[in-house]
């Protein structure tokens, strides 16, 4: 498929997002919730990178930070080597053409008071497309691309089913021709049969438009199906990162193993002997232990103990701490 590692399109460097808690005018409390504490990630051109983890692990906060919807506490986000954060960063308008987002809930992600055409045409107008015919052509084109008809543009969101709404959400994300699509649980609110259609659509679009995906998900079946690389997040940190086949065939970190083992899988009834994470847990690299070792509920307010991502096989990293 590809020759060598692709050059990073997007790079997240040591991202931290902290939220002050209980900080009101009267009571100044210094407690901070560490939603994201030290995330490093790269996204290659044409790649699909998935961030998996459970609610509260910081995967959505990371996504919002990339989209510019959440101010990072510290760290840097670079697009083609150029920083997106801080005063030197691009304007809102420039940024809009870099990355766009597809949201989880198709019922809340479309403005109920605007027709589909208006939702799609307004960003074009904002970004300088002036002539009416140009706008109409572009809207019709994008509707066809996501599997809808141009005449659907005249309708309001409530006239569509969940799957169709998600198609409209994808159309809106693509209308400005962005380089990166941030997929936030793109199919988890949809019925199983519709999920397949949306996944197929996303994969087709990725190929046709040479898009790069960052997908946030807790559905490991979807993640395995779509991803090139997978990052497993656990309480603000990446605990395992690697190519999809390494993560699913050879899960190494205790948390990844737990996550994979707990997915209810219809295949276990047919092959009760084939327990994916049952094989002997691989030992941590010499002189190290996995971090964190205990995957219960850690303290989200504490400063995490020092640890690093160690490469256990090419491109496959696991978070460890010195033994």
């Amino acid at each position: 498929m590809r020759d060598g590692p692709p050059a990073p399109l997007l790079e997240i460097r040591d991202l931290h997002v902290h939220f002050p808690v209980g900080n009101t005018l009267l009571a100044r409390n210094k407690r901070v919730l560490r939603a994201v504490s030290g995330v490093d990630l790269t996204l290659g051109e044409g790649e699909c990178l998935s961030i998996v983890g459970e609610s509260g692990c910081g995967k959505s906060t990371t996504a919002l930070a990339v989209m510019g919807l959440q101010e990072p506490t510290s760290g840097d986000i670079l697009f083609e080597g150029r920083s997106l954060t801080g005063a030197a960063g691009p304007s809102r308008m420039e940024r809009a053409r870099i990355a766009q987002m597809v949201f989880q809930d198709p019922y809340a992600s479309l403005n109920p008071r605007q027709t589909v055409h208006r939702s799609l045409a307004a960003p074009l107008r904002l970004h300088g497309t002036r002539t009416r015919s140009e706008i109409d052509d572009r809207v019709a084109d994008i509707l066809l691309k996501v599997g809808l008809l141009p005449e659907h543009g005249a309708r309001f969101p409530h006239e569509f089913s969940g799957g169709q709404r998600q198609r409209i959400g994808i159309a809106r994300a693509l209308i400005l021709d962005p380089r990166i699509l941030m997929l936030d649980e793109p199919v988890s609110a949809l019925d199983v049969s519709v999920r397949a259609q949306i996944i197929n659509l996303l994969l087709d679009l990725q190929e046709d438009l040479s898009l790069s995906f960052v997908m946030i998900s807790h559905d490991l079946g979807v993640v395995e199906h779509m991803s090139d690389r997978v990052a497993v997040m656990y309480f603000g940190q990446i605990v395992e990162l690697g190519p999809w086949d390494a993560i699913f065939a050879n899960p190494t970190h205790p948390y990844t193993r737990k996550l994979i083992a707990t997915i209810p899988d219809p295949d276990t009834i047919l092959h009760p002997d084939r327990d994916r994470a049952a094989g002997a847990a691989p030992p941590p690299p010499a002189g190290h232990r996995f971090h964190p070792e205990d995957v219960g509920r850690p303290d989200v307010y504490a400063v995490p103990a020092p640890s690093e991502l160690l490469e256990v096989s090419p491109g496959h990293f696991v978070r460890c701490a010195p033994a």
Partner: peptide, 24 residues
């Protein structure tokens, strides 16, 4: 989602208030 989307699409704050929030 649609308000967040408007922000990522480059809408200004006033425009978001007028077109996304007020009508709803």
């Amino acid at each position: 989602g649609y308000v967040l989307a408007a922000r990522t699409l480059g809408y200004g704050d006033i425009r978001i208030m007028a077109t996304q929030l007020l009508p709803n």
